[in-house]
Simulated assay, not measured.
Amino acid sequence: MSSQLIQSLLNESNDVCVSLYMPMVRWGREVRQNEIRFKNLLKDTEQLLDKDEVATSESRQGVLAQLQNFINEPDHDAWKHPHSGLALFVTPDSLEVHSMNYTCEEQAHVGERFYLRPLLPTLHGDGSFVVLTISQKHVRLFEGNRDGLEERFPEDLPESLKEALNIDDYMTSIQHFSYAAGNQVDTMYHGHGAGEDDHKANILQFFHRIDAPLSEYLEGREDPLIFAGVEYLFPIFKEATSYKQLLPDPIEGNFDETSAEELHKKALEVVEPYFRQEITEAIENYNDAHGRNCATDDLETILQAAQMGAVDTLLIREKTPIWGHLDEEGHVQQDKAPSEGSLDLLDEAAVETLDKGGDVFVVRDEDFPSEKSSAVAKLRFAIEATTP
């Protein structure tokens, strides 16, 4: 998923927009729960459509027919290869299915636009990343998130240098190549002069053979790529790869026999600072703007400013909806629980901000810059300009 998807959903115009989100079981016998959970969501959707004053009988039938067709399609990739979460966006005329690399709460929404709050983490990285482990004997590709790693097997990705270059006697071209298993550091003794140059040239060619299928597999994605291999190989791989999101810090060592669990721990140490960097800068910018009277943590002011296009950056607390509505005078009235006519006011603030060209960050509870509020905003101009 990406910001382009969110923008396309924002631009969708229909009287009846249905948004469904559910966590998925990814493996084991419990995978059967996915279909059961979806059927429960389908029942919830029927009830919401029955209550919706805008939904006609025809539009109701159109939405339900598309959802029924989806559940009756067992070969759909969403069922065969489940991710951590699933999102569906349905109108009487269209159905979009998107796998999510992070878990989400099971929920159904019906309205005049799609409910986008659970997608907002994708604006600045959804916690998904890719790990490529490389030695001259073995190539492995993993996709992961904060929950774990899974090995993938892209078509045409070579499994080793020997396979990539069709060299049967390659190892005789260097004097010695061995693995120090104790500290997982390769020790390599090269030939001198031309021999060493030939060795590097062969590895560079090897990495070019890896880059083509890897780039095809990752086409259109912005997930950070982590290189895992011996120190000697990383500079050569950087020279060969065309993927723009390669992280500058590799995981050093040999990982031919490393489990996905062990590799996941090492990968998180590298990727977590990357994911936190943008959010940390956004929080610092908000704190700086607060000192210049160009920031607010008042929800009503945030909503007014967002509608005016005055919000530069909106920070919202993770997994904390605020249900409510606006009264006739435009003031916020919070509801104790979701009810007919209730809106997730943080979703409203985010949509208005994005629609007017602002930016939105989802921040973990422990990092949120305000104790009393679940939304704060850095404004494009002083607070007084947003209040009556």
Rank of each mutant, 00 (worst) to 15 (best):
Q184H: 01
E278L: 08
V25I: 03
D327K: 05
L42Q: 14
Q47C: 12
K336Y: 06
R317I: 06
L225A: 01
L233V: 07
R29L: 08
L268Y: 05
A108P: 07
S3Y: 12
T258L: 10
F255K: 02
L263K: 01
E300M: 11
D126K: 10
V185N: 00
K162H: 15
G220N: 04
Y286N: 01
L218R: 04
T387V: 15
G193L: 05
D355W: 01
V230R: 05
L42E: 14
K80C: 06
M1D: 05
P154E: 08
P273T: 11
L354S: 06
A212G: 13
I236E: 08
R37L: 14
E30N: 10
F38H: 02
T45E: 14
Q47D: 15
N254C: 11
Y189I: 11
S178T: 12
T387S: 12
S2M: 11
Q66T: 15
Q307T: 05
R152K: 10
T313H: 03
R32G: 01
A87N: 14
I6E: 00
E12A: 01
P213R: 02
L123T: 08
R146C: 10
P338S: 07
D312W: 01
T103N: 12
V271P: 15
A260D: 00
R317P: 01
M188T: 11
E106Y: 09
E261L: 13
N69D: 13
V16P: 05
I203L: 05
V360L: 13
E252R: 10
G330N: 00
L165C: 07
V230G: 09
K162M: 15
S84M: 06
S178D: 07
I316H: 03
L379R: 06
E340T: 03
R32V: 04
V110I: 13
S59K: 11
E318F: 10
L116T: 02
L64F: 15
T122E: 06
T296E: 13
M24H: 12
N183G: 02
A55D: 13
K336N: 08
W27F: 12
E284P: 14
P369V: 05
G358E: 08
D50Q: 14
K80R: 11
E219W: 07
V271M: 02
S99E: 01
F368Q: 07
I302N: 01
E46K: 15
T386I: 08
H290S: 15
K39F: 12
K372S: 10
F70Q: 14
T122S: 06
R209P: 13
I174E: 04
L88M: 15
H199P: 08
M100P: 01
Y286P: 02
E328Q: 10
I279Y: 04
H83K: 11
K39M: 07
E318T: 03
H98Y: 00
E58F: 15
S128P: 01
E163T: 07
H83D: 12
G330C: 06
F381H: 07
D52L: 09
T133G: 03
I251T: 01
L67V: 10
